[in-house]
Amino acid sequence: MKPSTDTYSREVLTTTLHAVAGGDKQAFEQLYQMTSAKLFGICLGLLPQRSDAEDVLQDVYVTVWQKAAQFREGRATAMTWLISIARNKSIDRLRARGTLQRSSPIDLAGPLSDPAPEQPEVVEAEQESQRLDGCMNTLDPKQRAAIRVAFMEGVTHDALASRAGVPLGTMKSWIRRGLHRLKACLER
């Protein structure tokens, strides 16, 4: 079985990304092998049209090739840096598409806690990131559901509000309060 992204350590990804920054094409191919399935999953999750996800994935790696030197390991890890590029490009594509956003209703009753992760998680930054799950569970279920759907689908406040059948102000407030509590919990 092909190793998933999750089996690559933070250190390996960082080293590989630094090599890419130096123009090492072999390292670039390794990086693609290590991370493309994860990033493609993220693009597919955000973009309803598969062809968009494929286009964006190409853009992501072209950007990685060009801008790898800009990565500085600090607050965000190499994987988070890559994920952020994939998410930002996907969300921008989604905005450019306008009306093609998903429109399924959001069930704010939702499960009371987040589902267990489907697979072993990345070894890197494990303690830090696992705290998110715990903190998400301290949120009001509506806040948690809104934040989760927003993150997974990249939808605007407006679209979230109409899908949840609540006024825009209410949705904005849920999300802000949720984020505020999340931050307080994570900084504890």
Binding site: A37, A76, V122
Partner: peptide, 21 residues
């Protein structure tokens, strides 16, 4: 971004078609 990394990691990976590379 790092705070939300855990959520991103819950997204199921998907093999990209080979022609993407």
């Amino acid at each position: 971004q790092e705070r939300f990394a855990q959520l991103a990691n819950q997204v199921a990976p998907a093999d990209a078609p080979a022609y993407i590379w």
